[in-house]
Simulated assay, not measured.
Amino acid sequence: MADNSLIADHTASPCINVCVMNADSGLCEGCWRTLDEIAAWSGATDAQKRSIWQHILQRRETR
C-alpha cells in the first residue's frame, strides 16, 4: 500500500502491481482506485493526481 508521504510526490503512481478489481466496491485491491481513475492517471494534471490521492486515502481510512 502507498503511504501518505507519496502525496508530496503527487506524480508517483499509487499502483503497487496488485491489479485485482473488487466487483463489490469497484476499486482495485492494490491501489484503491476506480477503473476511471486508473485510466485517467497518465493524462491527469498534477491537481487531478492530488485529488485522486486524496480519494484513495479517504477510502483506505473508511475500510
Rank of each mutant, 00 (worst) to 15 (best):
A40G: 07
C31I: 01
W41D: 02
T11A: 03
G43F: 00
T11S: 06
G26Y: 09
A12G: 03
M21W: 03
H10S: 14
S25M: 05
S25G: 09
I56D: 05
R50Q: 12
R60V: 12
G30P: 00
C31Q: 03
I52H: 04
I16N: 10
R63M: 14
Q54S: 11
M1T: 12
D46L: 07
L35Q: 14
I52S: 05
Q58R: 15
W53G: 08
C28N: 13
N22G: 05
S51R: 12
G43A: 06
G43Q: 02
N22T: 09
D3H: 15
P14N: 08
L27T: 07
D9C: 09
A44W: 01
V18F: 05
A2W: 05
E29G: 04
P14T: 10
S42W: 05
Q54N: 13
L57N: 08
D3L: 11
A8D: 07
W53C: 08
L35V: 15
N4Y: 10
L27I: 06
A44G: 01
R63Q: 14
G26M: 11
R50F: 07
C28G: 07
R59K: 15
T11G: 00
I56H: 09
R50H: 10
T45R: 04
E29K: 00
W41T: 07
D24G: 09
I56Q: 09
A44C: 08
D36A: 13
Q54V: 07
M21S: 01
A39N: 05
A23T: 01
R59Y: 10
A39E: 01
S51A: 14
K49S: 03
L57Y: 06
D36E: 12
I7D: 06
S13N: 11
G30H: 02
W32P: 00
V20A: 00
D9N: 15
E61T: 11
C19Y: 01
D36M: 05
Q54M: 06
W53R: 09
N22I: 11
S25K: 14
Q54T: 13
R59P: 10
T62G: 10
M21T: 07
H55Q: 13
L6G: 08
R59D: 08
Q48S: 07
W41M: 06
D36P: 03
